[in-house]
Amino acid sequence: MTVSLEKAIGHSQHGTLLSRLMNQQVFWVFIAAALGCISLTLVTDTFATERNLFNVTRNFAFVGIIAIGMTTVIASGGIDLSVGASVVLSAVVIGVAMSSGLGFWPSALLALGASLLVGFVNGIVIAYLGIPPFVVTLGMLSLARSLALVLSNNRMIYEFGPDHDLLLALGGGNVLGIPNPLIVMVVLALVMSFVFRWTRWGQYVFAIGGNENAATLTGIAVQRTKVTIYMFSSFTAGVAGILMVGWLGSVTTNLGTAMELTVIAAAVIGGANLAGGEGTVLGAVVGALLIEVIRNSLILLGISTFWQGAFIGTFIVVAVAFERIRALRGQD
């Protein structure tokens, strides 16, 4: 009796390590990205150069950072179309603040505050007024981008006051050869992997995405949790916005345009389920990696970047089809 109880408690549905791995979408996406890297190294002599890798990893980091926020939203059964607009708003706020003479840290706080406010408004309208996230964040996309235009008066900002060098060093610099944005992404990924698995908030994200009604009936503060989820998503966009300004050395108002699509693609390719309840931080990161590898390979191979959409689009559909097939197999 006690033996069988121990067995039941210890029982895991998953098989061996290998079969578990093979069953993970993330694993296959990673293989695809790795194969891409290897063949690019063999075929071109431009891929494995320090300069190119530096660019690839940094681009990848920006998408990866926001994809972690997006995966959280998608896992909770929502969507956030306003992240690209949050990026530009955060960038414009820090740009305007710093060029008017404010130091880096207070300006960064203002920029993060602006993006958190975007998420707060999204969350309140979605959670308390019950308007679908698609609609709310689509509206916010337009609103936040327009605010950025108003704030900057559509001027390009390239002088950032007393802390100019610090800003550029943060976004464009590196530590021991690792680009700073990549370090930020890795830290965020580690923290959020922990949060997803080991905290109530993380569990509630998945509970809400799995069955919102059940989450409400069991007494989870669904509405409040949703507000924090959208705030987190905007926060990641705000952080990426600040780093992007530092990297580019200037703010233009087309920053982050259509970025929401790339980020959603990264999350979905990495296994986030648009129906809610599923998604991993590792998946978001690996999805972002694959997208950047595709983008970079087209450039290096001299293929028109107009093809980028075709490749990414195909990968999205393949990734979701893969998930469907796996789900169907899992049913018997």
Partner: peptide, 29 residues
């Protein structure tokens, strides 16, 4: 039934009333 399909039986049993333990300065599930 108000169950979350994407979670384990135990997580569903404890949904909203998760047991916690100390992990350094934080409380984890």
């Amino acid at each position: 039934l108000a169950l979350c399909d994407n979670m384990s039986a135990a997580s569903n049993v404890f949904l909203g009333r998760e047991l916690k333990k100390s992990f350094g300065p934080v409380r984890i599930i």
